[in-house]
Write a protein that binds this DNA or RNA. Sequence first.
DNA 1: TTGCTCCTCACGTCACGTGAGGTGGC
DNA 2: TTGCTCCTCACGTCACGTGAGGTGGC
Lengths: 168, 168
Amino acid sequence: MSARRRRTTGEGSDAVRIAETRGVFMISVAAELADMHPQTLRMYEVRGLITPKRSPKGTRLYSQADVERLRKIQRLTTEEGLNLAGVETVLELEDRLQKMRAEVSKLRAEAAEMERQMEAEVERMKRSLRAEIVPYGAYETTELRPRGDGRDQTVKIPVERPTRRRRS
Amino acid sequence: MSARRRRTTGEGSDAVRIAETRGVFMISVAAELADMHPQTLRMYEVRGLITPKRSPKGTRLYSQADVERLRKIQRLTTEEGLNLAGVETVLELEDRLQKMRAEVSKLRAEAAEMERQMEAEVERMKRSLRAEIVPYGAYETTELRPRGDGRDQTVKIPVERPTRRRRS
DNA sequence: TTGCTCCTCACGTCACGTGAGGTGGC
DNA sequence: TTGCTCCTCACGTCACGTGAGGTGGC
């Protein structure tokens, strides 16, 4: 939860990992990491494409996430030839696409869970029903106590060898 | 189904409606409808942004759908300032977004239908179970015929006043 | 002092739109 | 003949990247 320094182990790297959104790179470093001219980064900020943090003295501080965004912009402009208006639009659309993908995953998971619960419920009722209509004489006493109003009632009956199906 | 001429009534217009994808406009008309220079349309075709049909003589023929695409391109370039690479990317992304939206709708509909069926099934079983455990003496004879192996069996019992709920 | 930061201004390049110019068939 | 179509070539404009130039604080 904390935005402070933290280490992550595994993932094949021993490097100290920095919280994604913490401003850590001065403009020259960020520019080199993104393979851009520092002046270009300043321009992108004016255009509203990127908003690095600032040190108390006013020095720009770029986060890991900022650098990744810059690399994405770099790819869109250099490789795909978009202008900055296009970059803006595309980043926004990709954001929405990402949210839609999450939505689809969520819906699929919910549907699967609902199906599971439905099967469990039906199974539960089947067992309940089966217990009601065991053959005469299978058990010593099967006491059915009727209720006056004749509405829903559940009667528990001791079952010797309950039929078990799959995982419930 | 047919791609041939057809009329549609209603929708507040008496105009003859043309199948969306049929090539009907010469370049000067399409250009005017899209508020573009004819030469620009030729350029877009070279760039692969639009592919009008051709008459046997080689004259470009733009469909209603082509014109709408042109207007969309017009909006993206003039109003939003994208270049053509951006337009290409954005149109492709919007296509995917549209498909995702359809996917989400479909999943939601499926989930609703599943829930409906589940409720119906549970209801059906409840009724079945309720019929089994009617109080003694409610009906003249309730004959339970046991089966030898004691496994699943369904026993149908005449019910005088079946409880009917909603549409099944 | 060196090397960074901040900023503004200016220029080169490239994409894009469009006009010109010449051709051909209803 | 007029007005459209087809095409290619060329030029003006604008966006963008980047270099220069001057400032200030570790």
